Simulated scan of single mutants.
Amino acid sequence: MQNYIVACTIGTMESLKKERLSVMVTDAIKEIIRNENLKSGDRLYSEKQLSERLEVSRSSIREALRMLEVSGIVKVYQGKGVFINDQDAMVHPVHSWVVENAESLREHFEVRLLIEPHAASVASQRASAKDLETLRKTYDEFVGFVRDGNVSKAISSDGAFHLAVAKATRNRTLIGLMRTMEQTLNEGWYASLHVPGRLESSIDEHNDLLKAIEAKDAEASASAMAKHLNNALSDIQRFFGNI
């Protein structure tokens, strides 16, 4: 793994391999901010500079910066650069991001509601024993991260669970779409899972979905996925206001 990320991430190489690259890159950028004592208003390195420094693709840097912006750590100004946010002035950083990006958030859930219930239905009919084992393992990891209060890894694991459902469809086009969504539309995951109680609710909703897929019940699988996504959107609207 890249030297800087390895140096800035706690744990063994084996544990690093299990963690999504975006989480590792996000943590590495946070470490840069801490190590260089960057303050509110300071300009962060450019995407190109961060890409070269961390030895990862610019798309990985872009994804990490989106997550840092949603969490209120940085502010990205098109054409100007990335700047450190004023943490003291922010009442609720995720709330500010949701308000500013309401349209893209609506589009995020609109696309997921079009694709994922059908994916869950197909997965229930095609999932192999190995697919089910992966789903169960990913679900258990998600539960563990939620119980430990590790929000960033819980969010990563939540995305991995949804991707595992897509992979169980055996449809390469659908898998590609879900992988793209997980990498480029993950602000919706991030925003929803910062709503108080949403992580805990997701444990039950994921479990209902997993049981339906294991039972090979296509209708129940689609229903469980649609309920999960609609609940997430409703919780965002309830907590942050209508979007």
Rank of each mutant, 00 (worst) to 15 (best):
T169N: 06
I5G: 01
S234N: 14
K216E: 12
L44W: 08
N85C: 14
D217Q: 04
R106D: 08
S40E: 15
R170S: 06
A64Q: 03
R20D: 09
L135S: 09
E219M: 06
L233T: 02
R136S: 09
I175Q: 13
M90Q: 15
M90R: 14
F161L: 13
E19K: 13
I73Y: 02
S202L: 11
N85S: 15
H194D: 05
T12F: 00
Y190F: 10
Q183L: 12
E107L: 12
L113I: 08
I5M: 11
A89K: 12
L114I: 10
M13P: 00
F161K: 05
R62T: 12
R20G: 02
Q49F: 05
P196Y: 14
Y45V: 03
H108K: 07
D140T: 14
L177Q: 10
E69H: 06
D27T: 12
L114E: 12
I84K: 04
I5K: 03
S156P: 00
I61F: 02
H92T: 02
M67N: 12
F109R: 01
T184M: 05
E200I: 02
A127T: 06
W97G: 01
I213G: 05
M90S: 14
V165E: 02
M1V: 03
L65K: 10
D131C: 04
R53F: 12
F83T: 09
G41V: 13
M181S: 09
A191T: 15
S59K: 10
M24F: 00
G41T: 12
M225L: 03
K167G: 01
G144I: 03
H194I: 03
A160S: 11
T169W: 03
I10H: 00
M13V: 02
Y190H: 13
V82N: 03
N231S: 13
W97D: 05
F145C: 07
G11L: 10
Q87E: 14
T12K: 06
D235A: 15
L50T: 08
V91D: 10
V82S: 03
